[in-house]
Design a binder for these strands. Structure first.
Lengths: 242, 242
DNA sequence: CGCTATCTTGAATCCCTTCAAGTCGCGTGG
DNA sequence: CCACGCGACTTGAAGGGATTCAAGATAGCG
């Protein structure tokens, strides 16, 4: 299941073939997409598109990760979404993007010219069905995050974040597994609506409380999964309804 | 353009005909929907569906308004969305709802049995296209709200909220127009991630600063639109990208 | 006209931020 | 190989904005 991305390969060998906007397409439809797509890469830290920029393409993240964020005039910034492989950038029907998109790691995008993609949305039901599914999933995730931003304490935010990172890595979650934080303290802070100092302090507290153990600054293991779950503020059952 | 809802009328006379999930449907498709729909009403304050409940229907709000919210174990609650006429409740493809849905005013829903609606999503492209559009719009709105919840001060939150309420009423916005807050202080607080006392205090401050004038507790006019805009923390241009 | 839910205002507290000073760790170049 | 330098991180102390707790005021309704 571990594909390595190679531009030369056709769509059928694409690592996100079964999760991206093309997931429901059959071979014939895939052939159409094949003729329309182009790739572009961005380096870590590079801005992929600025808020307000004209939206020439609808893109899917093939490899790497990116963030969606908004920065207020005085510099406060809030991350409103993470884009992982298979997630898409840009909305069909919108001429501009509403958030800054920044490459967290090196990123490869599979892009479609926007007008052409909008025709696909009209003509190929499998496309609109899949985009609908993905948008509804994103919407759920965004609302879940709103609860965190609006009502959770710093400790609960951090615990929820750690649990999310770990769940991305492995399912089901076990104790004593090794994990890596793929973000700086500042990125975590902008994601959780905190300052980087508070993030640092709360991580230290979780460490002091014997919930997490750190090896270096980014590598950690969970020592007490129950305590971590408890600290999230969510219901005991895990709060994840699929 | 001001339809009054009457169950006896067919879909073509429905007040949300051109905005709801059926917006893109032609007359033939509408005839199918006509045979599948049923109405149900809820009284103000009534819970329409609880988080975790089985989702038997996909519904559209025809009249009235409802809120989507989550309540943590200790009672903290966060409103994650407002449902106004034409907005839908429930996601095709999901067996349960993830948030509590509560009637803010008396509410009338137009409902489709979920399984049947999911077949529509597969068979009628105009449905999936429209749901896709609506989900993408909701997603944008949710992300915009995440910025507010994560990074704005109490004053900025209140100013943004007032501006939103006013924009719903009238476009373009003028000073000295009369408006009504359709929520209690507590509902506003749960929407903004604040306490009701803070909401009250900030409204009093805006009044003292000559930005708003109140007639009673819910009725107000804008005295200084520029100051209100300024207080939102958003860019001068209004931040609304369509 | 009085009752009650809603709202306002005050005072104390607390959690997070801000400001400031280090420490750590990693890559680079001597 | 180690010193150096710099970005990332940690920790402390002070400050502030929002919450909490506690009275009252107001308005809308029977």
């Amino acid at each position: 299941m571990n594909f390595v991305f190679n531009e030369r390969d056709g769509c059928s060998k694409c690592p996100i073939r079964h999760r991206a906007v093309c997931a429901r397409c059959d071979e014939d439809e895939l052939a159409i997409l094949e003729g329309m797509k182009s790739y572009r890469t961005f380096e870590q830290g590079e801005t992929i598109i600025w808020r307000g920029d004209d939206l020439h393409h609808i893109s899917s993240v093939v490899a790497g990760s990116a963030s969606l964020s908004r920065t207020l005039e005085d510099g406060r910034t809030q991350v409103v979404g993470l884009l992982l492989p298979s997630d898409f950038i840009g909305s069909p029907g919108r001429k501009a993007v509403e958030f800054d998109v920044t490459a967290i790691t090196d990123v490869t995008l599979c892009r479609f010219e926007r007008k052409a993609f909008e025709r696909l949305v009209s003509d190929v039901p499998h496309i609109s069905q899949r985009v609908m599914e993905m948008a509804l999933d994103e919407l759920s995730a965004a609302r879940e995050w709103m609860v965190l931003l609006g009502r959770k304490t710093a400790r609960e935010k951090i615990a929820t974040f750690i649990e999310m990172v770990v769940r991305r890595d492995t399912a089901p979650i076990h104790q004593d597994q090794h994990h890596t934080l793929p973000f700086t303290r500042e990125e975590i802070a902008n994601f959780l609506g905190l300052t980087l100092e508070t993030v640092s302090r709360q991580l230290s507290l979780l460490k002091k409380d014997g919930v997490l153990a750190f090896v270096g600054r980014r590598e950690f293991t969970i020592l007490d999964l129950a305590a971590l779950r408890d600290a999230t503020g969510d219901d005991a059952d895990g709060s994840v309804i699929v």
